[in-house]
Amino acid sequence: MTADLHTLEGKSFWDERFPMYITREREAFTLPLHIHDFIEIQYVAEGKGFHYIGDERVVAEKGDLYIIPIGTHHVYRPSSPLSKNELIVYNCLFDKNVPQQLGLSYPLPAEIYSLLNGESASYRRYKDTSSEGRQLLEGMHQEYFSKQAGYEAALYAQLTKLLVYLYRLETNQAFSMPAYSGISIILSYIDKHYNQTITLANAAQLISTSPSYVQKIFKQVTGQSFIEYIQNVRVKKSLELLQHPFYSIKEIANLVGYRDLKFFYTLFKKKTGHSPAQYRSRLTTPNIENQ
């Protein structure tokens, strides 16, 4: 059966110089059941549908994280062809030798390799209840798309962090900090209300604590200040909206919560290295240097 399956090859996505590929896909009914000769980490970002993987049909929903080793056949299907039921998945593809290369620079736990090569199971599935997986995959996608100077090094570092996060999920270490459950509630609230005014006081009320405590624990858990995190979420949302030409940049600024257009421009360029107009132009203009 495996020999008859459609096979995706890494060389179709990258060159040997940098054997990694990051994409954000709107799943459809066109891609057949397939296997691949690379390791894949996937994050279900939006929607709900089904993941046909191995001999199972698994409900796929927002917050699912998967490790797909080489040789595991799978495919996603949205719950229906209607656009309102779209299923959006982030994909991180990399060559099987990349983890060993990372291990030469970082003391990766040995168990990570067995998770990736499918020794103990044909795939791994986790729930990203803290939204850390989403942040990592979104950040990697943005880094890969912008291709600023040194992006390869940045992506290898981010992949290392992602692998450690998956290892912690596997060993249940990621949620040993009591504050994690409370911060998870706040992260979920920000993700749904990013276009509104959100203060530390608002966040503290969600988990019945003080603003100063939220500020302190927020930094420990996410590695970002409260304001910085909200700014990053808004910029990431604006990157998605810029893919739709019918929105003006002023409208996008409003949709992500900024009424001051000048401030939005300044923040966007600081975070991405480009103005919103330049970023939108890159979406439609071929990158001649990479051809």
Rank of each mutant, 00 (worst) to 15 (best):
L155I: 01
A203M: 07
H34E: 02
E46Q: 07
I183L: 10
A3Y: 14
E228N: 12
A174V: 08
L283D: 12
G71S: 09
V59N: 15
G118I: 09
V256T: 03
Q215I: 02
A179G: 09
A149I: 10
Y106E: 12
T7M: 14
K237E: 11
G150R: 02
I53V: 12
P69S: 00
A60G: 01
L65C: 11
G150S: 02
P245W: 11
L116W: 06
A204M: 07
E25V: 13
L166H: 10
L31R: 07
H193K: 14
D191I: 11
I22D: 01
Y126T: 08
L267A: 05
S114N: 10
C92Y: 06
I230N: 06
K48Y: 00
R24M: 08
L137P: 12
A121F: 05
V235N: 01
S176F: 09
Q215M: 13
W14F: 09
E138P: 01
K48D: 08
V235G: 05
K269I: 09
A277G: 11
K96N: 12
F175I: 10
A3I: 12
T30H: 13
H51N: 09
L8C: 10
V89H: 04
G133P: 02
V233P: 00
Q205R: 14
S225D: 07
H244T: 14
Y123V: 13
I68N: 06
I53N: 06
P19L: 00
P32A: 00
V235S: 07
Q278N: 10
T284E: 05
S146I: 13
I185Y: 08
A45N: 11
L115F: 05
G139W: 03
S105G: 13
G71R: 00
Y189P: 03
N202P: 03
